[in-house]
Design a protein around this nucleic acid. Structure first.
Lengths: 189, 189
DNA sequence: GGATTTGCCTACAGGTATTAGGCAGGAGCA
DNA sequence: TGCTCCTGCCTAATACCTGTAGGCAAATCC
């Protein structure tokens, strides 16, 4: 009777993998128990409930994505940094669709404030420093970048660009170019 | 023993209302049965299953939103039409968050092709005609508009802009301005 | 080596999805 | 008016997911 050695961390990580395989909304305590070959109630010693599991996966994904973005933009500035930021975002979503969906989970205010979500916002602001925007333009720009990246990635993951030319990648680059142009233009005022 | 007179249409409409009240993912066959004060299995004469219900609500929302957008952009062109399009989109999502979420449901290729989704794409292209973009720029631009609008609305509904200045509306206008500027710039080439 | 704690288990209660089959009341016809 | 059929909602039953309560055995502590 070997104990599988369940911990919240292992469950979270396995939940993230499960999310990528079957979709974040299919991540269930039952499925996770099956994956560890234990009975369902055993997980409730390590997880408060199923929402707790989802939140843990979300926080994990936010951290992981923030790390990737930080890595990608390190040492870059201006258009270069913008493109790196954008690509890190899109690549993560394509590689880990379930975790990406998890990262979009609506968190409570206190949870969100303690999450890696704040790093995301900081990095977006850091990139915008290269464009020399003053407030409130900088905030507007952060929101615009968040909207475009999230919106594009959502639509692409949902298959919105699948059956039409040109390829999704070309539009992505066109859009990043456009954003760069807008930001340079805004800063020139 | 009055019969409530269930029909797919009435169920769909009630489902849409339910979605706005409790969220699209909380729309359940059981909740709908409670709303009509009938037993759950009674609905299965009118609905194939719970996914069928969701799809019907999605198609309904797509139609309704397309009607609104068409109304909003009628007789407008250029920046004016762009802003009307954008506002129609955002207003609908704020007014009917559940239906908006429903409209984002991933549909199968044949269902999508028969849905009002195609009208949405046509209207976006119509607006872009005012900017005189050639292919493939027009397609890139359609995708960009879709990304920004959907992304912004998602973030706003998720409460992303709630606890920070400036107000969401100001960013929205700033972003629409920016899009207009990009499109004018692209067409000038 | 005995007591305690830890970690997974069984048992159970409640909710949702879905299928099969029953029954009653309204519609059509004589 | 009375008979039949059909429509529309019902009960019954299965399966799966969430969550709680309490048990038991292995690991740990003294």
């Amino acid at each position: 009777m070997d104990r599988p050695g369940l911990t919240p961390e292992r469950l979270t990580r396995a939940g993230a993998e499960l999310a990528d395989e079957v979709g974040f909304d299919q991540v269930t305590v039952s499925a996770l128990a099956r994956r560890f070959d234990v009975r369902v109630p055993s997980l409730y010693s390590h997880l408060k409930n199923s929402q707790d599991l989802r939140i843990r996966i979300a926080l994990f994904a936010l951290e992981e994505l923030a790390d990737r973005v930080a890595d990608a933009v390190a040492g870059r500035a201006g258009r270069d940094a913008l493109a790196a930021f954008a690509d890190a975002y899109r690549d993560y979503a394509r590689e880990h669709p379930g975790r990406y969906a998890a990262a979009r989970l609506r968190l409570g205010p206190e949870t969100a404030a303690a999450s890696a979500g704040v790093r995301h916002a900081q990095m977006a602001r850091a990139i915008l420093r290269g464009y020399g925007l003053d407030e409130p333009d900088a905030t507007h720009a952060v929101r615009m970048l968040g909207s475009v990246f999230h919106g594009y990635v959502s639509l692409e993951l949902a298959g919105g660009f699948e059956h039409s030319a040109p390829a999704a990648l070309e539009s992505w680059e066109w859009i990043v170019d456009s954003l760069d142009a807008v930001l340079r233009n805004r800063s020139a005022r």
